[in-house]
Design a protein around this nucleic acid. Structure first.
Length: 476
DNA sequence: AAAAAAC
């Protein structure tokens, strides 16, 4: 099977082959001819299966004829997150280069002015997240009566995010005579209902068993202590011993994302972060830095878990085990894309045992446990000076002969005591400050209270008892 | 328990 057999126009075919694609993926091979025949489609496919091109390519050919009118887009693509919407827009720019199709990207977090201007001129393709689309619709900037093609992408994610009522409302604004494509990784009952209601005689295409993980991805569970500084230490150890070209590190909370990125940077890693509390331009900029390789580590919340297609991500680390098992499948799916191989490490603290069980139940496979050797002694991050902020390649020393521990509980002390260290490596002692008091029971509290990371020298923070006047003003 | 999405 080749792209030439799918019925795409010669011009588009040339663009596709020039881009280096010769063989369509299974979802492309089955969806493209049907979309060109104007059928409604239910596509059950994981992200990373080539799903986006499966609808973008035939849409370009379908929209090649005809002209758009002011405020009346001819097609609409709905995406759950802003980044995904932007990514689909990039695809249209890439493949639709020769076709002079007009496009508007309607997402929140950026100014409405340009979006409204584009709508006024008339667009062939509208790519939107539901919030901004509804907003502009209610302001009267969009008429959907001329929209004869609708794509609902990542429908199950839309469901998770509570977008289904919005989607239903949008569907009723579109003409009844239209083509609708619905893509989802899974088919929970509400999505099935949505499809029954708004699709006509759809052809169902299923290319990947839901909840199955890509076999290109080597997966490991890494038992870790629950304290965040222990997890960070383990992470640095792994980053140092693995051939990490490119890694996304997922955390469950936005605050953890910020802390971890700060810590990694202090240790000289070229890292960045992305989460929903950041300004939209900043989010896109960080993503761009990562894609270009200016940074090779992206610390992320689940905003980046689904659908993001970044080439050549060699590793995914779950710094926190995800709460929901389907998030696990999506997160690790950021690596091993397009036939490449990838490695996924998931940190599992004792409290995460149940989450891990659910993950293994969902994927139907037991994930290998990886017991790390005791970490080698690290250099303390240097005090930050201007010179030190220059990015350098990540390096962590790992002791070659470190004993392999059977379980975490039996693991030797993570760091040698000061006396031993001084004897063994006197030249490095000067660079190091006092060891963190790892055994102290108040470590967790301290860790939570202080916004900066444990590696920061303790000269700026408050470690003593809280004085009475503070207790009063904070109502403690 | 979180995150995401409109101002």
């Amino acid at each position: 099977m080749s792209f030439a057999d799918l019925g795409l126009s010669d011009e588009l075919l040339k663009t596709v082959t020039d881009a280096g694609y010769t063989e369509p993926t299974p979802i492309q091979a089955s969806a493209i001819p049907s979309v060109l025949m104007m059928r409604d489609i239910i596509g059950i496919a994981q992200t990373g299966t080539g799903k986006t091109a499966a609808f973008v390519l035939p849409m370009i050919d379908i929209l090649a004829h005809g002209r758009s009118r002011a405020r009346m887009p001819r097609s609409l693509i709905l995406e759950p997150t802003r980044e995904l919407a932007a990514q689909v827009a990039e695809n249209f720019e890439k493949y639709g280069a020769g076709q002079k199709l007009s496009m508007a990207l309607l997402i929140g977090g950026v100014s409405m002015g340009d979006q409204i201007k584009a709508l006024e001129k008339g667009v062939d393709v509208l790519i939107a997240t539901p919030g901004r689309l509804m907003d502009l619709f209610q302001r009267g900037n969009i008429l959907l009566t001329g929209c004869s093609m609708l794509v609902i992408d990542e429908a199950d994610r839309m469901l998770d995010m509570g977008f289904i009522p919005d989607i239903e409302e949008i569907c009723t604004k579109l003409p009844a005579q239209r083509q609708t494509l619905l893509f989802s990784a899974t088919m929970p009952p509400p999505i099935k209902k949505l499809a029954d209601k708004f699709l006509q005689n759809p052809k169902t295409i299923e290319v990947a068993r839901p909840a199955s993980t890509n076999t290109n991805i080597t997966q490991f569970v890494v038992p870790v202590a629950p304290q965040s500084f222990e997890k960070r230490k383990r992470l640095r150890q792994l980053l140092g011993q693995e051939e990490v070209r490119n890694a996304i590190i997922f955390c469950n909370r936005k605050t953890t994302v910020r802390e971890l990125n700060k810590s990694l940077k202090q240790h000289g890693f070229r890292s960045g972060e992305i989460h929903g509390d950041m300004e939209q331009p900043q989010r896109l900029a960080e993503l761009e830095l990562f894609k270009r390789g200016d940074i090779n580590i992206l610390v992320a919340s689940d905003v980046a878990a689904r659908g993001l297609d970044i080439k050549g991500v060699s590793h995914v680390f779950n710094f926190d085990a995800p709460w929901h098992p389907d998030d696990y499948v999506h997160r690790i799916g950021r690596t091993g894309r397009g036939g490449a191989t990838g490695t996924a490490y998931t940190f599992v603290a004792p409290d995460d045992a149940e989450n891990l069980e659910n993950i293994e139940k969902l994927t139907g496979q037991k994930i290998d446990r990886l017991e790390l050797p005791a970490p080698a002694e690290e250099e303390r991050p240097a005090r930050r000076t201007r010179r030190d902020r220059a990015p350098r390649t990540a390096e962590v020393e790992v002791e070659a002969n470190a004993p392999m521990a059977e379980t975490v509980e039996e693991a030797p002390r993570a760091r040698p005591r000061r006396e031993e260290t001084r004897r063994e490596q006197p030249q490095r002692e000067q660079a190091r400050r006092e060891e963190p008091r790892e055994t102290r029971s108040d470590d967790r509290r301290r860790d939570r209270r202080r916004s900066h990371t444990d590696e920061t020298p303790d000269d700026g923070g408050w470690n003593g008892p809280i004085p009475d006047f503070l207790k009063v003003s904070f109502g403690i």
